[in-house]
């Protein structure tokens, strides 16, 4: 019933947007019959999801529906107990090397930014490239500067995270992830902890990223963002995928009762 099998995504091209191509053959993430429990509590039930390279997926749903847990399984911040998760051709198992490999390819942006407060913005951005990718320091710094310019805060490079506003911190967090040159980006409610006037600057950065063809899975309540950039919206409830569709269809013609209820709550 609630189980919507991942269908072949379509590369939709709206005339008003830059071309965001979705690969037909290149699978970025494949989740098959994935289940997860916290102790006795069944948090994720039979999750099936196939994400092609270049897709922008928005995951919506009420709190406690398992949205965050699902994307946290994709870079193994949470362990799944049943089923398969294959990211970029690498299956996630207990093999620590494989996990590190996946994490190098998958960037993640958190609700509370999780910047390292004891390091400057520049150090936050260059730490992983230098220590994980073994990039020479000068090169890593040049890269970091490029991404900081991209998120429009190059002038803050030598400050500490504590000196920045929430929106700026979140943009640094995005730049920090980009510095690792990830093929996939996960966003876990990136705007939920921000003041209203800062949400826009972060969303703009994310839209730009989407337009450049980044594969993205975004857990968010920003339905405007979903309409603008997503090529698929997934609705989750009680640990399962209840409905998924193209944004236009999803918002104008929801099928499942829970989806209708949810949308009526958040769209006025």
């Amino acid at each position: 019933m609630a189980e919507a099998k991942a269908k072949k995504p379509q590369a939709e091209k709206k005339p008003t947007q830059p071309v965001m191509t979705v690969s037909e053959t290149d699978v970025a993430i494949e989740v098959t019959d994935m289940n997860k429990w916290y102790g006795d509590f069944h948090v994720l039930k039979d999750i099936n999801l196939k994400v092609m390279q270049g897709e922008r997926i928005v995951v919506a749903g009420p709190s406690g529906s398992g949205k965050s847990t699902m994307i946290r399984c994709i870079n193994r911040l949470e362990e799944h107990q049943k089923g398969r998760i294959v990211v970029d051709g690498i299956e996630l198992t207990n093999d620590l090397k494989k996990i590190d490999e996946v994490r190098r390819e998958v960037g993640m942006v958190f609700q509370h930014f999780n910047l390292f407060p004891h390091l400057t913005i520049m150090e936050n951005c260059t730490l992983a490239p230098i220590w994980v990718r073994k990039t020479p320091k000068a090169e890593a710094e040049a890269d970091a500067m490029r991404y900081l310019t991209k998120v429009k805060i190059p002038e803050q490079a030598h400050k500490y995270p504590g000196q920045l506003s929430g929106g700026q911190q979140q943009r640094v967090a995005i730049a920090r992830s980009l510095c690792m040159n990830p093929r996939i980006m996960l966003f876990d409610e990136p705007t939920s902890a921000l003041d209203p006037e800062m949400i826009k600057e972060v969303l703009e950065t994310m839209v730009e990223l989407a337009q450049e063809g980044m594969t993205m899975i975004v857990v968010t309540h920003e339905m405007g963002f979903a309409r603008q950039v997503a090529n698929r919206v997934i609705f989750m409830d009680e640990g399962q995928i209840v409905e998924q569709n193209e944004p236009e269809e999803f918002f104008t013609n929801p099928q499942h009762e829970r989806t209708k209820e949810f949308l009526s709550q958040i769209l006025h």
Binding site: N75, L77, L96, D100, R103, R104, V106, G107, M108, F110, H112, F113, N114, L115, F116, L127, A128, W131, V132, R176, S177, M180
Partner: peptide, 13 residues
């Protein structure tokens, strides 16, 4: 906990 997760998500062992 976010500090651990932030570090892990970047691929630090």
């Amino acid at each position: 906990k976010g500090q651990y997760e932030g570090a892990q998500a970047l691929g630090l062992n």
